[in-house]
Nucleic acid binder design. Structure first.
Length: 464
RNA sequence: GACCCUUUCAUCUAGUGGCCAAGGAUAUUGCGUUUUCAUCGCAAAAACAAAGGUUCAAAUCCUUUAGGGGUCGCCA
C-alpha cells in the first residue's frame, strides 16, 4: 500500500507550488488506492496561526482534494519526539553540545572564509569532561563521519552526498523542543509513509533525515523531489509575481479543475495530452514522469484551460457557481439561452459575469466610438422600421432562430446589408459594438425589452 | 565561497543512439467562418545552451565551459 502526505507549515495561505506537490501526492495515493495524509508542521510555535490552517483546508476543499483520517499536528506530539531523543542519548547516538550561538557564528564565518562549506565541527561529539557552567545544551545527532549517504530519488535518480557534508545537526534546541529534520523523519516513519513527494528545496534535508531513520531503525521511504516553479523570468516565484495564493484563483474566476489541470502539466506530462479530467489523472499519473528541471509559471495556458472548462461545463452547474460571483440566474427560464450566448466569451467566471450583465442590464451609457460609427446616415430610420416589423411579427418569437428570421426578412425587404441594422441595433441593446450574437440577445430580452432599449437609444443618441 | 540539482521553440512539454533536416499545446502573426467581438477551422514563424569527444549514426552517452535553481539556521 502506498501512503503519501502533504506537510505544510501553517504560516500563511496555501501557495500554488504547495498545491502542486500536494496534488502529485494526492494523485499518487489515489492511483494506488492508498492513503493521503495531512500533517501540520507547527513546531515553531511563534510563527504559526490557526487561520493559516483554516486557509489551507479551505483551499483543499475548493479544489476538491481531501485527506484520509485526521490531520496530525506536530505541536501535539512533543512527548513522542522527546521519547526518541532520550532513546538516542541513551544509545549514545546523540549527545549534548555546549557551544554557544556566538561560538557557532564565529565557526561558520571562519569556515566560509576558508572556502569550506559551513558546518558543525563535532567538538562535543565525544566530550567526556565537565560541561561549561550556565549553558543549556542543544542535542545533536551523530551523523556518519566517512563515506557517502546515497538514496535513489524517484525523479532525479541516484543522489550521492558525502557524509562530510552532513554535520551532527541539532535535533533538540536548548529549550528542549525538537527540530524540523528530526520530527519530520519520525512522523513520516510513524505515519507509515511509503512515498514522499516534496519540493526539491528539501533535497539537502533528505540525507539528514536518513541519518535519523537509520539511528532509529526506521524503514527509509521512497523520495521524489519535484523541481520548483519559477516566475516567467525564471526566478523564484514570489508574492511580487502576482497570485501565489490558491484562493486568489477562485476570486479571479478560475475553475478548480482548470487550475489543477494547469498545475499538473507544470512539470508532469503524458505524451501530447493537454486536457485531463481528475479521473484520468488518477489513472495516468506516475511520479516517474515528472520532469527533473524547474518550470516557469505562465498564466496564458491556465486562461486557455479555464475557458475550455467553462465552455464544457453543464449550464446548470455553471449557474450555481456564478451565484458566488454576483449573478443569480439559477431559476431564470432562459438560463440555457443566456449561458450559451456568453460562455464562449468569458475566459474566467468574472468575465462571464460581465458578459451576462452586459445583456441583462440595460446599457447606462453608450460607447462613444461605437455609437458614432453605428449611428450614421439613416440608422435611426432603419431602427424604427425594424421595431415596427418586430412588433407586428405574427409568428412565435422565442428562439434565436425566430429572431434571425425577422432580421433576415428585414434586410431583404429593405435591401440593405446586415451591418446596416446590426450595428445600430447592437449599440442600442448593449451600448457597445462587441458581444454576443444579436439573435441570442434578442431571444433573451424579448420583444418588449428590445423595443424599450431601442427607443431609449433613439432618444439619447444623435445621428451624425 | 563550498556542495547538490538542472539546461529542447517566448512558455509548458514529447523525445532514453537510427523512426527527428525534432512532434504537440499555449501565446504570437496571417487567412477563412461570423452583422460585431469571441469561439471555431486552416496556415506561418519559432528550440536540442556552447565546445570538444565516443560511434557507421547523438537532442539522446562522456568531458569541459556557461546559464538557472537550491542548500550551507537552536526556520520549516
Amino acid at each position: 500500500m502506498i501512503t503519501t502526505r502533504f506537510a505544510p507549515s501553517p504560516t500563511g495561505y496555501l501557495h500554488i507550488g504547495g498545491l502542486r506537490t500536494a496534488l502529485f501526492s494526492w494523485l499518487w495515493a489515489k492511483k494506488n488506492k492508498g492513503k493521503f495524509l495531512l500533517r501540520i508542521e507547527d513546531t515553531d510555535l511563534s510563527r504559526n496561526s490557526d487561520e493559516a490552517v483554516e486557509a489551507i483546508l479551505e483551499a483543499f476543499n475548493w479544489v476538491g482534494m481531501s485527506y484520509d483520517g485526521e490531520a496530525i499536528f506536530q505541536s501535539k506530539r512533543f512527548d513522542i519526539y522527546k521519547k526518541y531523543i532520550q532513546q538516542l542519548l541513551k544509545e549514545d547516538k546523540a549527545y549534548r553540545c555546549y557551544m554557544s550561538r556566538e561560538e557557532l557564528d564565529t565557526l561558520r564565518a571562519e569556515q566560509m572564509a576558508r572556502g569550506e562549506r559551513a558546518r558543525y565541527d563535532g567538538r562535543y561529539r565525544d566530550f567526556k569532561g565537565t560541561p561549561p557552567e550556565g549553558v543549556n545544551p542543544v542535542i545533536r545527532i551523530k551523523a556518519p563521519k566517512d563515506g557517502y549517504i546515497r538514496f535513489n530519488d524517484g525523479i532525479k535518480g541516484e543522489i550521492t552526498i558525502a557524509s562530510s557534508e552532513v554535520d551532527d545537526f541539532i535535533i533538540a534546541r536548548s529549550d528542549g523542543t525538537p527540530t524540523y529534520n528530526f520530527v519530520v523523519a519520525i512522523d513520516d516513519a510513524l505515519m507509515g509513509l511509503t512515498d514522499i513527494i516534496r519540493g526539491d528545496d528539501h533535497l539537502y534535508n533528505t540525507p539528514k533525515q536518513i541519518v535519523v531513520y537509520r539511528a532509529l531503525g526506521f524503514k527509509i521511504p521512497n523520495f521524489y523531489h519535484v523541481a520548483m516553479i519559477n516566475n516567467e523570468q525564471g526566478k523564484k516565484l514570489s508574492k511580487r509575481d502576482g497570485a501565489t495564493d490558491v484562493m486568489e484563483y477562485k476570486k479571479m474566476g478560475y475553475l478548480p479543475e482548470a487550475l489543477l489541470n494547469f498545475l499538473v502539466r507544470l512539470g508532469w506530462s503524458h505524451g501530447d495530452q493537454e486536457i485531463f479530467s481528475i479521473d484520468e489523472l488518477i489513472e495516468l499519473f506516475d511520479p516517474k514522469d515528472i520532469n527533473k528541471s524547474s518550470s516557469n509559471y505562465n498564466l496564458d495556458k491556465l486562461l486557455w484551460l479555464n475557458s475550455h472548462y467553462i465552455k464544457n461545463m453543464p449550464n446548470s452547474k455553471l449557474a450555481t457557481l456564478l451565484k458566488e460571483y454576483g449573478v443569480d440566474i439559477e431559476n431564470n427560464s432562459k438560463l440555457d439561452l443566456i449561458l450559451n450566448a456568453t460562455k464562449e466569451r468569458g475566459k474566467t467566471l468574472v468575465e462571464l459575469v460581465n458578459q451576462i450583465n452586459l445583456i441583462l442590464k440595460a446599457p447606462e451609457e453608450y460607447d462613444k466610438k461605437a455609437s458614432k460609427r453605428a449611428f450614421r446616415g439613416e440608422a435611426k430610420e432603419i431602427l424604427k422600421r425594424f421595431i415596427i416589423l418586430l412588433k407586428s411579427w405574427d409568428k412565435p418569437l422565442d428562439t434565436p432562430a425566430d429572431y434571425h428570421r425577422v432580421l433576415k426578412k428585414f434586410v431583404s425587404d429593405n435591401n440593405i446589408g446586415f451591418g446596416k441594422i446590426g450595428q445600430p441595433l447592437r449599440v442600442s441593446l448593449l451600448g457597445s459594438m462587441t458581444g454576443s450574437g444579436l439573435d441570442e440577445i434578442m431571444a433573451i430580452l424579448g420583444v418588449d425589452e428590445v423595443a424599450k432599449r431601442v427607443n431609449r437609444a433613439l432618444i439619447s443618441l444623435k445621428v451624425n
